[in-house]
Design a binder for these strands. Structure first.
Lengths: 229, 229, 229, 229
DNA sequence: AATGAATGAGAATTCATTCAT
DNA sequence: GATGAATGAATTCTCATTCAT
């Protein structure tokens, strides 16, 4: 169901949904590879297997395609990260898992994430705002977990905004600097090292106990080498 | 003196230098405000006070202007950060000051930093490589300081690449998410909180002693609240 | 019943008639307001309450719609003007009434009249010819009346073609220059003044007597102030 | 010198003038033949012997070309008609000559005149107003002459607005209905008949004497057959 | 008969780049 | 060296027309 408010000339909402998915999939690939400005509507149409004219039945202008693509990126974050911490109650474990999931989602959408950094400014102000709102919403998954940790004294009192973005930037960094990491580290190593560094700086004594427990009992979540903490 | 290898039709190297500075200054402003693709050669020429034709005496194509601009950005980092740690011998103090300086340089070149994130991918591969090399060179100021700290056991053994970029991303983050921080934090607070979090995670006992000393004796460097460590 | 020779995919002639009426009504309004080229088939369909596809069941191309519209305009003239002089036998009265009626029909179809001037040339030559034939047919109502007046020596011998169009242009002028007249004259005044000027130039002595009689006895026809002639 | 207020990217005003003349000449021909909407910028450029891009150095959009063309038409009227009555002092002769000149100018610019009728409505409201203002200015040559005649009692008191447009429409009619007249009348005949009809309707006794004098002594002005008046 | 989604040719406009002066 | 007018390829977007349902 459409939450984008982008007008379409086509009435059937299912069709709108399906066509937009087609268009967004093609555009995401092309924008990621070549950037927004180098990508031509004709290329998107061709890759999506439709005519150039059709694109404009589902979108008012080229920038709308970019908006749809970027909304899809943040939307994916907003769906996949919560899924990873569903059912987990321990606040510290929720935090660690959320960061871990964030990094893994970024890994899966590496080029789209880079795209978001490159292209958000190409949007008109209102559209950009839309994206930023959703980014904040997603990040609140992290910051909520953080707040819970702090209130349970698992983490010492820190500036939540700062720490949230420090964690978010760790996740994004995997995409932004993948040209650097690619030949140097695996994703698991990256996550381990970063989370290790961060947690050591903020965990309380209680948090350290809980943290090592949380991590020991959860092997799927690969954040392991905190043992010595 | 020109290290860019960008061909010019003009012989006199001083003139080339002067003209390119003019052009780069104008282009930096415009690219930062509007992005690379939205900025027209005519606009750059006008702001630089020259004719559109003249630009092409000093540059082969528009993308060369972007390269010059981005080189200037990384060049500024490579000059200003070392200046901030000149003469300082204590490795931990060098590290802290380098990070502090990095954040402050980013603050001064906020939009150019964002520009670098947005536009590096608009460069052709060889040109992009040029930029990435210089980025690594700049970051080695941080990583060298880190290595020194580790070898003096002020910091526990960590993955230097990871930690370097964690610190670099803190600096860059101030620009990348300035739309978020602007209304929430001052630069000093931002630096304090982030450095605090990071150092607590990596300092050894010895480092903690040295660190608090380093910081206590340096009031210009505003990283203060480590007292309780 | 269809005299247009425009092919339709639909068999049932009543339906063809009804649908075309719908389409022409919508198109007349839109063409008048926005002109032929600015008006989209989709708009016509929407205003007519049908689908864009349906239009093409009753018309081969967009220009056919214009032809239908223009035919309707001249058709209206050809019907309404004769109606106004039906049963009147005095040739001079027939002439005056015809001109009066022409002006009033133009007034009722002001924008469609302007449309005809703007758009006839947008038709292909054969179609344009069709319109011009009907225009001549309509104007022959005027010229026939003129000829009758001349042969009864109510009007001195003049070039009938010239005078006919002089009268026709008076009628059309009310629409063509309505932007000018709107704030200056009523339709009745316009008719009075123009007819007065013209008649004074062409009436014979006999015509003057008959004219004032014709006009005196007919108050519905507002051309009055010839009394002093 | 430019009175159009249309912005140009080119600075040299002489060049602007020359180029616009080139463009307008080509556009006038093409618009007249094919209409505004059927004429492509590329065609105009080709006929003018320039590149399509160049057109946009002298004009902001296609509609500006139409404005320039229509301004040229009304401008020509405003120049040529006064020239024809220069130095003539007798008011009635001025009037007759002005109408005569108007008809002859229309004849020379027949298709441009028709173009004006077809296309003025294609202009945006402000631009349309510009044209209408100039039309009124031109027509005031006629109405001024009329007023002079009336005040000298050469013409009986009539509504000046109505009579002016009656005369203007006679001139325009030669272009508007040239498809009809072409095979039936020469321009001279057309002028004679129309002016004759009109004058007879409005001249006073004094005017009739003066008129026949005015006309008899001026053979270049072909309005002759008033002899019997 | 009717619908309305889909097509794709076509047009206005832009702007990096060139080049005569 | 510098200028700025000129070029023309390239791109977005529109809309008459078609066609599967």
């Amino acid at each position: 169901m459409d939450k984008t408010n982008i007008a379409s000339h086509v009435e059937n909402p299912d069709l709108v949904d399906r066509r937009r998915k087609q268009i967004v999939a093609a555009a995401t690939k092309l924008f990621s590879d070549q950037g927004f400005y180098r990508t031509k509507i004709k290329e998107i149409a061709k890759l999506a297997g439709v005519s150039p004219g059709l694109v404009y039945l589902y979108v008012r202008e080229k920038e709308d395609v970019l908006l749809l693509v970027l909304l899809q990126v943040v939307e994916d974050y907003a769906i996949e990260i919560p899924k990873a911490i569903e059912g987990i109650t321990d606040p510290l474990e929720r935090l660690i898992r959320a960061v871990d999931a964030y990094c893994r989602v970024v890994d899966r959408h590496r080029s789209a994430t880079v795209l978001a950094y490159r292209s958000t400014k190409s949007l008109s102000p209102e559209r950009r705002l839309l994206i930023q709102e959703r980014e904040i919403a997603t990040n609140s998954i992290i910051s909520d977990a953080l707040i819970a940790c702090i209130s349970q004294k698992l983490i010492r009192p820190v500036n939540v905004d700062v720490l949230t973005y420090q964690l978010v930037l760790i996740a994004h960094g995997w995409a932004l600097k993948s040209w650097f990491y690619k030949s140097r580290l695996t994703l698991d190593e990256y996550i381990n090292h970063n989370v290790d560094n961060m947690l050591r700086g903020i965990l309380t004594k209680a948090g350290q106990r809980s943290g090592s427990a949380a991590i020991r009992c959860e092997s799927a979540c690969k954040v392991t080498h905190l043992g010595g903490m």
